[in-house]
């Protein structure tokens, strides 16, 4: 995929991964793997950015004697997803136009 396009999509992808239930780093990577591959080192700045812009919050849970960080989506995060969905309705229209079959010319 085009790098610029991918970069714009990764933030929303991560938000979508925690949309329905809180999740942790490694699980997020596994969840979005069927759709887009993201490396561990790429995910970290994304999570930091989303936390800084208050689109998610972080909390720790004990797991097997160590602490695991869980990420929870905020209303701002949900708004971001909604904005993305609206935007891409337009993209879908453009896509339909671009791939349309040739019509017979008189």
């Amino acid at each position: 995929m085009d790098i610029q396009l991918k970069r714009g999509l990764l933030d929303v992808c991560v938000l979508a991964a925690i949309k329905n239930e809180d999740s942790y780093g490694y699980q997020i990577i596994k969840d979005i793997k069927p759709y887009v591959t993201i490396s561990e080192s790429t995910l970290y700045p994304i999570l930091r950015r989303l936390e800084a812009s208050e689109q998610l919050t972080v909390y720790s849970v004990e797991h097997n004697g160590r602490l695991r960080k869980y990420y929870h989506i905020t209303q701002a995060g949900r708004d971001r997803i909604a904005a993305f969905a609206e935007e891409w309705k337009e993209v879908m229209l453009i896509y339909q136009y671009v791939i349309r079959e040739e019509t017979n010319h008189e």
């Binding site: 780093g25 490694y26 561990e40 970290y44 160590r66 695991r68 960080k69």
Partner: peptide, 9 residues
């Protein structure tokens, strides 16, 4: 902490 957790996972 993030990377240690990732490695452990």
């Amino acid at each position: 902490g993030y990377y240690e957790e990732m490695i452990d996972d």
